[in-house]
Amino acid sequence: MLAASSAENSLMHRLDVRSKMLGFLVIIILTFLFQNPLYQLAIISGTVFLALAINIPLRKITGLIIPLLPIVISIILLTGFSYSPQHFVHLSNRKILFYLFPGKHIGATVGGFLMGTTFLLRIWSLLIASSILTFTTSLEDFTQFFQWLKVPAEVSMILTTAMRFIPTLDKKRSLILEAQMARGMNLHGKGIRGSIRSYVPIMIPLFINSIIMANSLSMAMLNRGYGLSQAWTVQPKKAIAARDLWAVTVIILLSFLALFVRFKLRFGLL
């Protein structure tokens, strides 16, 4: 209980939603700014440090990363063969390690594998950053942010409802998976078709449950008179605190530093 309360009172939790959205946007820009995986590793290290600082469970982080390993390995192999040597700036990255077919056809370049590693780290850093944002921001704050952006109330309702249902659907997925495994379901089918077929008994009940949940939600909204009046309740605007000004200043300075390193010093290229 003490750990939970201290985590909820962390600086990230107390920041204004606009400051956190700006930081999330900057992380997205930084991940696509650099091609070198060393710079991507620095970005993902920063996101992991923030995740540990606000006490996000390590199981949650590994649960996001491990299921994507087969996909990202395929991406690394694909980029290794799909990027030509002329695509890279540095000569060391133009080196061809081996050829897929005899006669020097379809060569695997060093830069191609490094680019695939960059894609891998980009996906992981964005996943961790989005987890930090949703873990430290309430749905009421997201609603206020959408109101600040002048998003229509109907669209804001759809977005916040979708975010509210994500953890519910994840719990239902876990329950369905445990129930199907108790019935002797095999998740390790042979080949791609076997893997897809093994997940059909999970996806079909999950889709049915999501439809039932959506129908129950629509009936509850109709019973409460949703849409009867065009007047919407507007949340009071929060004032920007001093900690938000400091956070925004640090974020902007880091952004200018990254732009200087990338475009002036021309670092981070392959």
Rank of each mutant, 00 (worst) to 15 (best):
I28S: 07
L30V: 14
T31H: 09
L33C: 11
F34W: 10
P37N: 13
L38A: 13
Y39N: 06
Q40N: 15
Q40E: 07
I43P: 03
I43H: 10
I44K: 13
S45M: 08
S45H: 13
V48K: 11
L50T: 11
A51I: 12
A51H: 08
L52P: 07
A53L: 15
I54Y: 04
N55F: 07
P57N: 15
L58K: 15
R59Y: 07
R59G: 11
G63F: 05
L64Y: 04
I66K: 15
I66S: 05
I66Y: 15
I66G: 07
P67W: 14
L68S: 11
P70R: 12
I71C: 11
V72D: 07
V72T: 14
S74M: 15
I75H: 03
I76F: 00
L78E: 03
T79S: 01
T79D: 01
T79C: 01
G80Q: 08
F81K: 01
F81Y: 12
Y83K: 09
P85Q: 01
H87F: 13
H87G: 03
H87N: 14
H87L: 07
H87V: 09
F88E: 00
V89C: 06
R94E: 08
R94G: 05
R94A: 06
I96S: 10
G103D: 10
G103H: 04
H105S: 08
I106G: 02
I106C: 04
A108L: 11
V110T: 09
M115K: 03
M115R: 12
G116E: 02
G116I: 00
T117D: 13
T118S: 14
T118P: 09
F119R: 15
R122L: 07
L126H: 15
L126E: 12
I128Q: 05
T134E: 03
F135W: 11
S138T: 06
L139G: 07
E140K: 05
D141M: 01
D141T: 01
T143Y: 11
Q144N: 10
F145P: 02
F146A: 08
F146W: 14
Q147Y: 04
W148I: 14
E154Q: 07
V155D: 01
S156V: 02
M157H: 04
T161E: 01
M163N: 03
R164M: 10
R164T: 03
I166D: 00
P167H: 04
L169V: 08
D170I: 08
D170Q: 05
D170N: 04
K172W: 02
K172Q: 07
R173A: 13
R173K: 12
